[in-house]
Amino acid sequence: MLYALLCYHQEDVVCSWTKEEDDAVMARLAVVHEKLASAGKLGPAARLLPTTAATTLRKDQDPPLVLDGPFAETKEQLLGFYTIDCADLEEALSIARELARANPGGAYEVRPVSLFVPGTFAP
């Protein structure tokens, strides 16, 4: 069984870490990542840029509506995610729109990835 671990924390607290504090956390995580990767237990992982860098595509209307900022409603639940490789936000939004046509309803939050760990397994 594959599991996704979804990471939550208070953003303004994490953003107020000094570079040294941030580096120390990342270094401790890297040790765990390495161990998991060599055991074939680690798939792709990502650290996301702050929510201020997010754009949201509301696909519960036609045409979908693009809004600045993160997904903010609480009546929907997180049911999945994609990682896509794009030149810019415009391309990312056009892919999101294409997916929205296939699966309307709800929303996609489009958030740039700041650190990508490819992982090792190929299930």
């Binding site: 860098a53 700041s114 650190l115």
Partner: peptide
């Protein structure tokens, strides 16, 4: 140069230009 900071700056500019 600080890579994540540059990535965040570029992402914000990308949003702004739209």
């Amino acid at each position: 140069w600080n890579g994540p900071m540059i990535a965040e700056g570029l992402a914000l500019l990308d949003k702004a230009i739209r």
